[in-house]
Amino acid sequence: MSLRLYAIAYLVFLYAPILLLPVFAFNDGTIIAFPLQGFTTEWFGELGRTAALHDAVQASLFIAVLSAILATCLGLCAARAGTMASFPGKRGVMGFIMLPLVLPEIIVAVSLLVVVVQVLDLGLSNWTIILAHTLICTPFCIAILNGAFANLDPSMEEAAIDLGETRWGAFRLITLPLVTPGIVSSLLISFTISLDEFIIAFFLSGNTPTMPVYIWGLLRFPEKLPVVMALGTILVALSILLLTIAEFYRRRGLARAGLRDTGGFL
């Protein structure tokens, strides 16, 4: 029983910051502190009038969509290879691809910065961020897709080939539909990661900041903070929505493969 109390207290700890977001986003006062001043939707209105924010959102969406697609493609290759014949060094190769999962992001950021700016002498742009985000999202995609592929009976594809399909046809007609939920969930997760990512984006962004970089800039201006709260509220709502959809697809994937649920994404 005390364990349950602790668990609930822990959830409160986890959710405290998020729950405060809407509170201050609708608070009619520029100081982010209690007591509250009254209800307003002004901050949301101001979001709509800020052109720089729109550019940032656009840049972020562009980056997140492309990173999600690229990372999911790379993840598909790796996860598919994972289910196939093993060869010497496979574990090492896999481990290396998964490395960004534990590598501090600042290391990825500075090493790419050095290469792009100092070695290749190129300018920074959204593309540098896309490349980096693809790198850090790929391990998450692999983890999700591995689950999707591991649930497949390997003789399923052979059965399709046996019934006259080509190798590609068997993949398209059998494997792909069965891992589609995993692919959707991988796309959504990497989209969310990229959209939120700050540390790397801060080092690598060019002329247009991404949304987190833009928010970072706003945090220095106290009068802008309520706007940040409003933006955060929208982002949190969006993230929860995307994650719920991702979770829904992940479960449906399990249900399709006729399996029972065993736990979360990772």
Binding site: I18, L20, W216, V228, L235, S239
Partner: peptide, 17 residues
Amino acid sequence: FLITIPFWTSYLIRVFL
């Protein structure tokens, strides 16, 4: 799922909060 949700929401804003 409940435990992972906060983790996926804007890092910067969470820290700021």
